[in-house]
Every structure is written in structure tokens, then in C-alpha cells.
């Protein structure tokens, strides 16, 4: 089976085990540019592992992952890291902002990792912080802002490099519904405006409702609901 035509990121027959625990057992996935795909499923079903594999954080035991025509599974760690720095963005549930750095420094971090100067990185960071309505927090440290604000800072950080794929793992998991929805609105709006694809891992239907379609992961196998029908 070849990846669906036009897909930006696609995976076939992914298998991944952590010791005796089988996390993925033949999962499939594909996403087009500008598409928001929710990955749903009960906890422990392998959603996060699927995301980690797709993002090149964890190499799968077997199977193929193609990003923009390139095979990800065979890439060296350094090349995958470089890809993550320049083409991908990440938002996690919590524990992702560096507590010592100010918010604007946190947002600027990926740009600086790519070699941008501090000034230009922080200027770009501020633009994104404005779009996510957190530019007022630039001098604050993550410990001094609320959960929703912190998560918006994290979204700004994920988008600052202009990624083509944004990976979000339970981005609203630690937020109340109002804050969660606001973060989702900002996230999807921002992603759509840059034509970035979003892989959204969530177990919440109301968060998944911000997606264009969903795939369900159960016992390490995925089911693409659109293609199934």
C-alpha cells in the first residue's frame, strides 16, 4: 500500500513495543497539508506512541513513515532532530516550558536552536505571542502564569518556526473547558492560517471536534473513520 496521494505525512503498518508492552501493532496514518486530524482512543491504546513515531521522536520497530516524500524510519537521530527543529512543532499537556526562561525566551527557543540571533528570535516570538494573546506575559516566567496562558505560550512556541506539521498531545488536558476551547481555537486558527497540518492526540470529543476528521487507535491498531465508511 502506498501513501494516499497528496498526503504530507503518512505511516503504514507501524509496530512499536516497549519491552513486553505492545504500543503499536500495525497502525496506519495519513494527513494532508492544512488538515487537522484527531487521534482518539482510550488511554493506553497507543495514541501518544503513534504521535511520537510520526514526529520522529521514537523510531518504530517496523513499518514506514513518509514525510514529504522522505522515509523517516531510516533517518539518523541527528537528521530527525533537525527535522523536528525546522519542520515540526510540538505542544504537550504539561512540563514543556523551561521554568528558568521567561515566556518570550521560551517561545524564541526553537528559533535560537535553529541558529537565529536572540534579537530576531524574540521579535518573531513576540509576534506569535500577540496572535495568541499572551504578549503581555513576555517577561514572566512560566511559574508565574496560569495554565491556560502557559499553554498558549507553548502553542506560540510550537508555531514560531512556521512548522508544516504541528503535533499536539492532549494540549488541553490540564485546562478547564473554557480555557481549553480558547487554546484549541487559537491553535487551529493559527495552524490553518499557515496551512500547517495538525496531529491532535486527545481523548476529549469536544477537543476532537476542532479537527477535520479523526482516526481511532485501539489496542495499537488505527482505524481511519473517513476511509472506513
Amino acid at each position: 500500500m502506498t501513501p494516499p496521494p497528496g498526503s504530507l505525512l503518512a505511516a503504514e503498518n507501524l509496530r512499536k513495543a516497549y519491552g513486553p508492552t505492545v504500543a503499536l501493532d500495525g497502525a496506519e496514518f495519513s494527513i494532508h497539508p492544512g488538515e487537522v486530524v484527531a487521534v482518539m482512543g482510550p488511554s493506553g491504546s497507543g495514541k501518544s506512541t503513534l504521535l511520537h513515531c510520526l514526529a520522529g521522536i521514537v523510531p518504530p520497530d517496523s513499518g514506514s513513515i513518509t514525510y514529504d516524500g522522505r522515509e523517516l524510519a531510516g533517518m539518523s537521530d541527528a537528521r530527525r532532530s533537525a527535522l523536528r527543529r525546522s519542520e515540526f512543532g510540538f505542544v504537550f499537556q504539561f512540563g514543556q516550558l523551561v521554568p528558568e526562561l521567561t515566556c518570550v525566551e521560551n517561545v524564541a527557543l526553537p528559533l535560537r536552536l535553529n541558529g537565529a540571533s536572540r534579537k530576531e528570535a524574540e521579535r518573531a516570538a513576540l509576534t506569535w505571542m500577540e496572535r495568541l494573546e499572551v504578549d503581555g506575559l513576555k517577561g514572566k516566567r512560566p511559574g508565574e502564569v496560569s495554565g491556560g496562558q502557559g499553554q498558549r505560550v507553548a502553542v506560540a512556541r510550537a508555531l514560531v518556526t512556521g512548522p508544516r506539521v504541528l503535533f499536539a498531545d492532549e494540549p488541553t488536558g490540564a485546562l478547564d473547558s473554557l480555557n481549553g476551547e480558547r487554546v484549541m481555537e487559537l491553535l487551529t486558527d493559527a495552524a490553518r492560517s499557515t496551512n500547517a497540518a495538525v496531529v491532535l492526540v486527545t481523548h476529549e470529543a469536544r477537543v476532537a471536534a476542532y479537527s477535520d476528521r479523526e482516526i481511532v487507535v485501539r489496542d495499537g491498531r488505527s482505524r481511519d473513520m473517513e476511509r472506513a465508511i
Binding site: M40, A205, A208, A209, E214, V216, M225, E226, A228, I229
Partner: peptide, 14 residues
């Protein structure tokens, strides 16, 4: 799963 997909479709519209 099919039903969930249908629900999500409605939720997306909403």
C-alpha cells in the same frame, strides 16, 4: 466507532 464518527461530524458542525 461509526457512531462516534457520526457524533463527531455533528460536533464539528456545531
Amino acid at each position: 466507532d461509526t457512531q462516534r464518527s457520526e457524533h463527531l461530524r455533528s460536533m464539528r458542525i456545531l
